[in-house]
Design a protein around this nucleic acid. Structure first.
Lengths: 159, 159
DNA sequence: CTAGTCAAGAGTAATTTAGTCGGAGATAGA
DNA sequence: TCTATCTCCGACTAAATTACTCTTGACTAG
């Protein structure tokens, strides 16, 4: 439940690998290829290849078609690649509930009777904020950011 | 991605329904049965039945075996039923990543090379806190609680 | 020219989720 | 007592999603 897909895991691992391979950023970044990452993390090469392709399509990484020296490089700075972006690239818009980002036609037929939409949307937004608050850079240092989740019931206000 | 399962949705809707059916709590709570809920929300009765059964097993609701007048009632106060509890009842321990609540044998074989565990666990905990911070009671009033997600990078500290 | 790379789409296998069915036990009301 | 209506449970099937594979093509450094 609420689990990342394998593709998502692969994507994050790969990005972490690519990022850490291109060091500080002073010298030109090292180009790393699919096979290298796959072997490092025991992933099926072809699958990782697809994952990297979609990441490239979303400009999260940048592909270098240099024959035998080809491979990938980060498309932008690690701090500008958030986990939310990666997940959305791989799996499309993310959301706890369908009825949020739904096309007209297929929209939930019990919309009017659905009394739990509003609270669920709140949760969804919070999760998104959460995932958007952590970047690849944060995954590079062992110190990942402190995340504070605070739930303030509006009870002091009115009741 | 990161979507609730239908069973989870059904559970939450059902709980909201049961809760709102038993009003303030002064008079003895009304017993509501599976069929009634299913029809209200256009759910397959048998499936909802299973969902309610598992909720009952987890003491989130309480079953009344009273033949034709049988049905369910909340097992405790709405404010003491959190969304996290409901999800866990229905789908087992929830977590972004497998490697957190894993049995010995099947544990991830790339544990030692996994550089993204720590940050992901942080996210996982935050999501849990989030889901545990909202209760059925919150879903009853149109005012659902304010959720504040704040991400504090530890940059002031060291860098 | 060749080996090694990314790219893209179709196809298959495995796993998970959704939903169904049939039978058992209990009880209120006729 | 009989019947209708409920909860309960496990096995089963069906559908959908996810994971993974295969094939083909285009490009390029050496």
């Amino acid at each position: 439940m609420l689990k990342f897909s394998k593709k998502a895991d692969y994507a994050l691992l790969a990005l972490q690998y690519i990022a850490s391979a291109q060091g500080g950023g002073a010298l030109p970044p090292r180009v790393v290829n699919t096979k290298e990452i796959a072997e490092e993390h025991f992933m099926p090469v072809e699958l990782l290849a697809k994952v990297l392709q979609t990441l490239a399509r979303h400009q999260i990484i940048e592909s270098h078609h240099n024959g035998p020296k080809g491979g990938y490089v980060l498309g932008r700075e690690p701090k500008d690649i958030t986990i939310a972006q990666v997940l959305e690239a791989i799996e499309g818009p993310l959301g706890i509930t369908d009825c949020y980002h739904e096309k007209e036609e297929s929209s939930c037929d019990q919309m009017d009777r659905c009394n739990i939409r509003t609270p669920l949307l709140k949760i969804q937004e919070s999760i998104y904020t959460l995932l958007n608050g952590m970047s690849i850079e944060d995954m590079l240092r062992d110190e990942s950011p402190l995340i504070i989740v605070e739930s303030l019931k509006p009870q002091g206000v009115h009741s």
